[in-house]
Design a protein around this nucleic acid. Structure first.
Lengths: 108, 108
DNA sequence: TTCTCACATAAGTAAACGGTTATATAATAT
DNA sequence: ATATTATATAACCGTTTACTTATGTGAGAA
C-alpha cells in the first residue's frame, strides 16, 4: 500500500509533458541544461526546476563539468518507469519534430 | 510531440495513489462503486470522480446492472499503461494490506 | 406512493503544480 | 578586476488537483 503510493509519486514525474520529454531525451544520451533550454520551449529556471524534481526522486543524476551541468538517466530508474520510457519517441524523433538540428554533444 | 503530451496526460491518471489502487484492483476483476468506497478510504463522491476521470480517458468502462454500476479495465488500455500495471500489487495483496476481507463478487 | 440504497453531479476549498521574472552563485574569458 | 555565461534559487501567480459536503437521480423494496 505504501508501495503503491510510492509508485504513484514517481509516476507523477512522468505525468508532465515537459518532464516526459526530458526523460525521453536522456534515454539516448546526456544533455546539459542549456541544451534542454534550447530544445524545450520554457525558461531556463523552468527547466532547472523540472530537473531538480527528477533528481530529488532519483530518476536523473547530474555531472558538473566546468561551466556546465550534464544530466543523464540514473541507473536506479525503477522498472515500471523504464517500461514507460520504452514507448516514448527517441531523441532524434523529438528533435526533428521540434525543428532542432541534431547536435552530437556539448554546448561549448 | 503531440504524442508525448498525450502519453503524459494518460500517465497523470496513474500519478495519484487512489487511482493507481483502483486500476490495480480492476486488473483482477470488476468492482462496483460501493466496493471501492469500502476499500479505499475516501468518500463516495471522491471515488465517483476518480472513476469519471479514468472513464473519460478510456481506461475503464462501466456496466450498469440494476442498482449497481460495475467498473472494469477497458480493453483499450494502452501498452505503456499496461506495462506499469504489471508492477503494482494485485488485488489480494491490496485487500489484505487494508484489512479488508476478500469478497468474491457483488455488494448485494 | 414512499423510502432506501447506489451512484452522480455541483459547489466550495486548501494545497500542489508549472510556469514566470528577478536575483544569486560559480566558472570561464577578457 | 570585470564581464559573460551556465545554472540554481526565491518569490510570485494563475490553474489544476483531490478532497469535502450538499444535493440530484434513478432503481428496487415496502
Amino acid at each position: 500500500m505504501e508501495q503503491i503510493y510510492e509508485m504513484a509519486d514517481k509516476l507523477k514525474l512522468l505525468s508532465d509533458g515537459t518532464r516526459l520529454t526530458i526523460l525521453s531525451l536522456l534515454r539516448d544520451r546526456e544533455f546539459c541544461v542549456c541544451e534542454l533550454v534550447d530544445i524545450l520551449e520554457i525558461s531556463q529556471p523552468g527547466v532547472s526546476q523540472h530537473l531538480r524534481k527528477l533528481k530529488s526522486q532519483g530518476l536523473v543524476k547530474e555531472d558538473k563539468r566546468g561551466q556546465w551541468v550534464y544530466y543523464s538517466l540514473s541507473v536506479d530508474v525503477p522498472p515500471y518507469i523504464r517500461s514507460v520510457l520504452e514507448y516514448t519517441p527517441n531523441s532524434k524523433t523529438i528533435l526533428t519534430a521540434l525543428n532542432k538540428k541534431e547536435i552530437t554533444s556539448v554546448c561549448e
